[in-house]
Design a binder for these strands. Structure first.
Lengths: 151, 151
DNA sequence: TGGTACTCAGTTGTGCGCAATAGAATTGCG
DNA sequence: CGCAATTCTATTGCGCACAACTGAGTACCA
């Protein structure tokens, strides 16, 4: 007979575990990224642009890829532009759209950031099977919530 | 033969999955807690105090329980105090310590928050085995980082 | 063509998270 | 006792995250 009470009590613990782990990983990335004075979110944007082979992405595309809204991305991209990492340009096809691309300096930066991934691998648990499992479960939960929970 | 390259590439995806899921859960909680105008972190503090059976907790104890520092907790607790949810008091034994306890209104609030857990269970994936697995793996990762990674 | 609905980026306001720092209280040690 | 080191909370400053809103630009359609 399943213990429904204890089973439901699992959910808050699960949420708290995700919350706690996210902050631990955030502190880890903050540490790894400190030499480049990048936040984790800024790093994600640079990686996304770098992975796009020099092609620009629009603010909206970045938002969909990272699940972030313009309230977060707009000032973040502006700060990256102010540092010369990124170039912002209004699209000529559609004046509403702003395209974002790495500058030459931004491309160099992206190259250097390969270092970060290696350092990350040294600091995370080495059990690849467990990591694969965890990733699969996280994506399950994420996909479930994307479909069922929020707007 | 293990594919080491792809294996290392797993780590950034894992981190991003944790990051994404945390924000999804955050939005879910924000939705559930909106009727009480509580943030998730405020909710955690109220739950911790409620679970303590009327006994106060110090700011430091709350910080250790939730892995939060005073820079986050001090203003948060003050906001809860301003709303009459919580009472702050300097310990007479040790004037450095501030104890935090639920007021009568805070205790009522804590009672009402049982609702939140039920609503949460309705919105999260119903597969309890997967949830148990995920929780165990998250804790493994969390414990590993607590020992190896940060200060 | 005129107007209405929609899309896109940006702004504002609030709260969290954390590093760095400050300052008061306590402890411990000579 | 006197003083240095430590502990504990609070403050400051910065960036992220998001809701709510604005305003410009575009699409659609009668």
């Amino acid at each position: 007979m399943p213990d429904v009470g204890a089973s439901k009590a699992l959910d808050p613990l699960l949420c708290f575990a995700v919350y706690s782990l996210e902050r631990r990983i955030g502190r880890l990335y903050a540490d790894l990224l400190a030499p480049w004075r990048l936040s984790y979110t800024q790093y994600l944007v640079v990686e996304m642009l770098g992975a796009n082979h020099g092609e620009p992405l629009t603010v909206g595309e970045l938002g969909r890829l990272l699940d972030l809204d313009s309230g977060t991305l707009s000032p973040l991209v502006k700060r990256l532009e102010a540092r010369g990492v990124v170039r912002r340009e209004r699209s000529r096809d559609d004046e509403r759209v702003v395209t974002v691309a790495l500058t030459a300096a931004g491309d160099d930066l992206h190259g250097e950031l390969g270092e970060v991934q290696r350092c990350l691998a040294e600091r995370l648990p080495p059990d690849r099977a467990a990591a694969g499992d965890l990733l699969a479960r996280l994506r399950e939960a994420n996909d479930y919530l994307a479909l069922h929970a929020d707007a």
